[in-house]
Simulated scan of single mutants.
Amino acid sequence: MQAQDPTQIAHLLAELRQEHRDLDAAIEKLVNTLGCDELQITRMKKRKLLLKDTIARLESRLIPDLDA
Rank of each mutant, 00 (worst) to 15 (best):
D5K: 05
T33C: 01
A10H: 06
D53V: 04
R17E: 15
D24L: 01
T54I: 02
K46F: 06
D53Y: 04
Q18K: 14
L58V: 01
Q18P: 00
I27N: 04
Q18V: 02
G35D: 14
V31P: 00
K45Q: 15
L58A: 02
T7R: 11
R61M: 08
L23M: 05
A68R: 12
A3Q: 09
Q40E: 09
L51Q: 09
N32R: 13
D24N: 14
L30Y: 06
D37C: 03
L39P: 00
L16N: 07
A56R: 12
L12P: 00
M1S: 13
H11M: 06
I41P: 08
E38Y: 05
S60N: 14
K46H: 12
R21C: 02
E59L: 08
L66T: 08
I27L: 01
L34R: 10
I27K: 00
P6C: 01
Q40N: 05
D65N: 08
I9L: 01
D37K: 09
V31Q: 10
E59A: 00
D53P: 00
Q4M: 07
N32V: 00
L34E: 15
S60D: 13
G35A: 01
R43M: 05
A10Q: 15
L23K: 07
A56Y: 07
A14Q: 14
L30R: 14
Q40D: 03
K46N: 13
K45E: 11
A25Y: 10
L58S: 02
P64N: 03
A25M: 09
A26Q: 14
L62N: 08
Q40G: 01
A25C: 01
D67K: 07
L66N: 08
L30V: 02
V31N: 10
K52M: 03
D67F: 04
A10I: 03
A26T: 14
L58E: 11
L13P: 07
A26E: 15
Q8T: 09
R57F: 05
D22N: 15
L39G: 11
T42R: 13
L50D: 12
I41E: 05
I55D: 05
R57P: 00
R47W: 02
A68D: 13
M1Q: 10
K45N: 09
A3T: 07
L12N: 11
L49S: 10
A26S: 13
E28C: 03
Q4V: 07
D22G: 05
L66G: 10
L50A: 11
D67C: 02
N32Y: 05
A56W: 03
A56S: 12
I41F: 02
D22E: 14
D65L: 14
Q8I: 00
T7V: 14
L34M: 10
E28F: 06
P6R: 04
I55S: 05
L51T: 05
R57N: 11
L39N: 09
K45G: 02
D37L: 01
L30C: 06
L58T: 03
L66I: 15
K46G: 10
S60R: 12
T7G: 04
E59K: 09
K52Y: 11
L58Q: 10
L39V: 12
L13M: 03
L58R: 06
Q40W: 05
P6D: 01
Q18Y: 08
L51W: 07
M1T: 13
R43N: 15
K52Q: 11
L23V: 01
R43L: 03
N32A: 14
D5A: 01
I55Q: 06
Q8F: 03
R17Y: 04
E59I: 03
L23E: 02
H11W: 05
Q8Y: 04
S60Y: 07
D67E: 09
Q18F: 09
